[in-house]
Design a binder for these strands. Structure first.
Length: 421
RNA sequence: GUGAGCGUAGUUCAAUGGUUAGAGCACUGGAUUGUGGUUCCAGUUGUUGGGGGUUCGAGUCCCCUCGCUCACCCCA
């Protein structure tokens, strides 16, 4: 509103500030501590990659690749894309650095911003943050269960233990074509009754009809064949073992035969964690197995499993239950006069070196206004430093919570604080 | 990309088409010497998102545009 044009963050991109930032830090800290206990190590990859990393990795026909990527040419004429998700980058990194030569399976986690050019809405941003984890080099259902259990513990530690795990298996390249045929045969007589979107899906990606939200489509698919009834013996055994292990590890799940993933690379296990308290974009975490992706990206045959969780969505849920704690200074020093302020700076400097949070009043401000500011900051103590204190060497202190006050010699400030706090 | 709703002070919101657009909160200062919260007093803040039109007169009605929000699509 002032005369120079006021700058704004881009559409769908947000600043994260206190107090929310404390929740972000808590989420990130919890993830790195807990995931480490499961043997996951951090992997940091660039936010931009050659476009082919994603178009090949995620799948040419997916919505992400077709219309949601931030793609541009750099000054050398190369096609560059801001990563729309983490798995493709992680796979590129795995292959490029030949991580398969290390003891297998290899477990990594990552966190950072992702970019998708979409219309923003509740819980959806153009720059959004994910925490993801990937396991490379094991086809065992034990890995699926272990990672999902880790995720559950992560959510529980954050106080989100009641979230709903939905699990499905979408088979592999051996059994999925047969299922697709069965689905096409089932819908063939009623294609005209499907919604326009599903008529399109019928031609391009019939699996997607299963998660259409249109009521008519839901009715029409009531008796549709289920993926899990068309699994090959390998996929079937994998799925059954996974469910057993989830039970064993107390991961509360429901099998959702209609859950289909939008990314092309999934095989066998897919899962999602959703919440009722998020609005339309209700997925907190999504993941699954991708046994062919590493090979398809030029690496050795390496089965893999992973997930990604949206930090904004977790923070949204956290904000519904607990308010972010606002940290407060331990001491506010109100100094009266230039000489006192100089002395206060020295005292503050020493205390801060001990990692004690100290704030100083404005040099020329009245005592009243400094007291008011200390109160507003919720400082635990106020130290008052004026001529009297300079002469006597005794600093006046006051505890704001109960109004108790006293004096302490400058030399004893350190022990005063450790004794009182 | 499609659809709907909303744009007035830092913020939450007022203002039957009619003077100079107001209030709470917040912020700053003060209420006799150097003590916060409660109270009282005073003060600051606006291109009513922008542009055009109708009208004697537009924050209010119409059109365009920009922005925000929610939903669809899709997804974390």
């Amino acid at each position: 509103m002032s005369s120079p044009e006021r700058q704004k963050a881009l559409k769908g991109m947000k600043d994260v500030l206190p107090p929310d930032i404390y929740l972000w830090q808590k989420v990130e800290r919890t993830a790195s501590e807990l995931f480490s206990a499961y043997g996951f190590r951090e992997m940091r990859t660039p936010v931009a990659e050659a476009t082919a990393v994603f178009s090949r990795g995620i799948g040419e026909g997916t919505d992400i690749v077709e219309k949601e990527m931030y793609t541009f040419e750099d000054k050398g004429g190369r096609s560059i894309t801001l990563r729309p998700e983490g798995t493709a980058s992680a796979v590129r990194c795995f292959v490029e650095n030949q991580l398969h030569t290390l003891p297998s399976p290899q477990k990594y986690y990552y966190l950072g911003p992702m970019f998708r050019y979409e219309r923003p809405q509740s819980g959806r941003y153009r720059q959004f943050y994910q925490i993801g984890a990937e396991v490379f080099g094991s086809a065992a259902p034990a890995v699926d269960a272990e990672v999902m259990s880790m995720l559950r513990h992560f959510l529980m530690r954050l106080g989100l233990g009641s979230l709903n795990f939905q699990v499905n298996s979408i088979g592999c390249e051996e059994c999925r074509p047969g299922y697709k045929q069965a689905l096409l045969a089932y819908f063939a007589p009623v294609t005209g009754d499907l919604c326009p979107d599903c008529q399109r899906r019928y031609l391009h990606n019939p699996l997607r009809i299963l998660d259409c939200k249109v009521r008519r489509c839901i009715e029409l698919r009531k008796d549709a064949p289920r993926v899990t009834e068309h699994l090959c013996t390998g996929c079937e055994a994998h799925f059954r073992k996974l469910l057993d292990l989830l039970k064993l590890l107390n991961v509360p799940y429901t099998v959702n035969h209609e859950m289909v993933r939008g990314l092309d690379y999934y095989t066998r296990t897919t899962f999602e964690v959703t919440s009722e308290d998020l609005g339309a974009q209700n997925a907190v975490t999504a993941g699954g197995r991708y046994d062919n992706l590493v090979r398809n990206c030029g690496g050795p045959d390496t089965p893999a499993f992973g997930f990604a969780t949206g930090i904004e969505r977790i923070v949204d849920l956290l904000k519904q239950t607990l308010l972010p704690p606002e940290p407060a200074p331990a001491i506010f020093i109100a100094a009266l006069g230039e000489q006192a302020h100089d002395a206060a700076m020295v005292i503050a400097d020493g205390l801060r070196e001990e990692h004690i949070w100290v704030e100083l009043g404005e040099p020329a401000a009245s005592l009243k206004s400094q007291m008011r500011k200390a109160d507003r900051l919720s400082s635990e103590y106020v130290f008052i430093l004026g001529d009297d204190e300079l002469n006597s060497g005794l600093i006046s202190w006051k505890r704001l919570s109960d109004g108790t006050a006293g004096k302490v010699s400058r030399a004893d400030v350190g022990s005063f604080l450790s004794g009182r706090r």
